[in-house]
């Protein structure tokens, strides 16, 4: 099989996940897009492992580790989203703006003047 096929598919899946992370507003949809990006990386790892015929099969072992880390990530991420939803009543990442930069007092005075 041509190596470009899995590599291109992984690149496109990564771009789709990137779009989802940037464009989605619901935190759980953002987590789904992160899963897509992680899966693109996994496909790359498996394809290159099979291509190189690695004696230690480092790519496939690393894929298993990535899957486990992704499972841990989704568990913690969902717990955080649920806690934010319980405290704020929303899982909308656009409305969680506690750490945004506040306009300083001088700029406000200039705007008023």
């Amino acid at each position: 099989m041509h190596l470009a096929y899995p590599a291109v598919l992984a690149a496109l899946l990564f771009a789709v996940g990137l779009y989802g992370v940037l464009a989605r507003r619901n935190a759980i949809l953002v987590l789904m897009s992160v899963e897509l990006m992680l899966n693109a990386v996994n496909l790359n790892l498996v394809a290159f492992d099979v291509w190189l015929r690695d004696a230690l099969h480092a790519g496939q072992a690393l894929t298993l580790f990535t899957v486990a880390v992704a499972a841990a990530e989704i568990g913690i991420g969902l717990a955080i989203v649920l806690m934010v939803h319980r405290n704020r009543g929303t899982s909308d990442v656009d409305r969680l703006r506690d750490t945004r930069e506040q306009p300083s007092a001088e700029e406000k005075a200039e705007a008023a003047a």
Binding site: F14, A15, L18, Y19, A23, R25, N26
Partner: peptide, 17 residues
Amino acid sequence: ADSGNRPVALAVALAAA
């Protein structure tokens, strides 16, 4: 479901792809 920065996200994703 989609936030307001959709065009920017589309541009970034297309450039990355």
